[in-house]
Design a protein around this nucleic acid. Structure first.
Lengths: 232, 232
DNA sequence: GCAGTACCGTACCGTACGGTACACTGTCAA
DNA sequence: TTGACAGTGTACCGTACGGTACGGTACTGC
């Protein structure tokens, strides 16, 4: 479990993760590693946590010994897989030009849209399921890692946007953490839990666009400067 | 897996569950059953899905054979456990007297408070984790059942309140399903996922009260009749 | 007293899987 | 050519666990 980064061709020690969240880049893995990890991802989607290492080896045409040399043990493999997947996800950038209310709404909706697409994807659902079940048995740091790349990563990326909006006089709030909770709630609502619990999701493109737009609108009603909500 | 209700002293067939959600009452289980199921619950909290039937038998002072006679197989035991737990949870009633804006706010906050307490509890977290990991491996109907008792149950209970509010001219909305999503988001936000992923929760009494009140306030800003939000 | 039943405790079986050992293959540098 | 090395494939070990079988016990109704 400790040795899964022994191959480190790049990237720092994993303690960076908790603070920065960008500690593991795509370059941290060789092509061959990526092949194996992608096999693991597909197996996760197919069978959740119930895939065997033998299966991984068979489908990836590698030997168990190699797996253990590279990743230490099963947990190491899972953790590397989560990090590999996380390194592939890209988030929208902050708006470049002037920020008026309309540009802010656009930026918020764009974030929401990208986020909904991610958490509605088969991969994200599989990873979250796995991390959640591991968190229950307390048998690895998987939950912590998914937390770092998931909600925490989102919060880290949104905070500057919120504060920029406040600086421009477009938003009114005290605590950016609190604002994030509300934004999360408006965007994600109960859709993530439902998907995790196995409800057949209908995260199609149009639905996502629509939901994202509504969430951004409602958020502005609550925290927008000239709509006197009970914002605090 | 089919036989877990063979003992049925009361309660209808489990197809009631999907429609009504109250199909299994506390009376569906004998005292001895309840003892065993409570042991299972405590083991779930302690170890997630990774408890063995031997362990259950040891702690509950029963034999495996009895377990299999009662519940059919491991899944049957888990399902019965979820239903037993669900039968213990009670939700607040609708307000009895006149419904004005203040009473509505009270009722919403009360629902939110009770809900947050439930989903923040060790038991609920353990059950949700288990259901989610089972949904991933597609190995039982556990996810479906938790869904029925969780979000669906909540929606079923809230719908009349929303519609009463609309009838009284206190709320403005078209689709009660959509309103529920927003209410869920405002109340639960990212706290449930974070707890499921293992973040140490701080669901203490005061925090819950505060969050519930804020969620109810924000909900009224969005859908309250005389606060011209973008409600639809 | 006796049969029937429900249950407990425990020993046991089969299997699946994580992890290890080892022989074989291809590659590359000296 | 040869030797070091990384990786593959496979056989194997130990263990944990779901599920079954069975002997023993307490209670109930006749």
């Amino acid at each position: 479990m400790e040795g899964y980064l022994d191959h480190a061709d790049a990237g720092g020690p994993d303690s960076d993760l908790a603070q920065q969240g960008d500690g593991v880049t795509a370059a941290s893995f060789s092509d061959r590693h990526r092949e194996v990890l992608d096999v693991v991802l597909s197996l996760m989607v197919e069978a959740g946590d119930r895939f065997s290492l033998s299966r991984v080896c068979r489908e990836a045409s590698c030997s168990k010994e190699t797996l253990y040399n590279w990743f230490g043990d099963r947990d190491g493999l899972l953790i590397a897989t989560v990090q590999w997947q996380a390194s592939k996800v890209r988030m929208p950038e902050l708006p470049a030009g002037r920020l008026d209310r309309e540009a802010l709404r656009e930026a918020l909706a764009s974030f929401a849209q990208s986020w909904l697409s991610v958490i509605g994807g088969d991969l994200s659902i599989a990873l979250n399921r796995m991390a959640i079940s591991h968190a229950g048995s307390g048998k690895s740091r998987l939950g912590e890692i998914v937390l770092t790349y998931g909600p925490d990563g989102m919060r880290r990326r949104l905070k500057p946007l919120f504060e920029l909006g406040r600086d421009r006089g477009l938003l009114v709030f005290d605590d950016s953490g609190e604002v994030f909770h509300v934004f999360f709630g408006l965007v994600v609502a109960d859709f993530q839990v439902r998907a995790l619990l196995g409800e057949a999701p209908k995260f199609d493109r149009e639905w996502v666009r629509q939901r994202a737009a509504e969430a951004a609108d409602r958020f502005l009603v609550l925290f927008g400067a000239n709509s006197g909500g009970s914002a605090r």
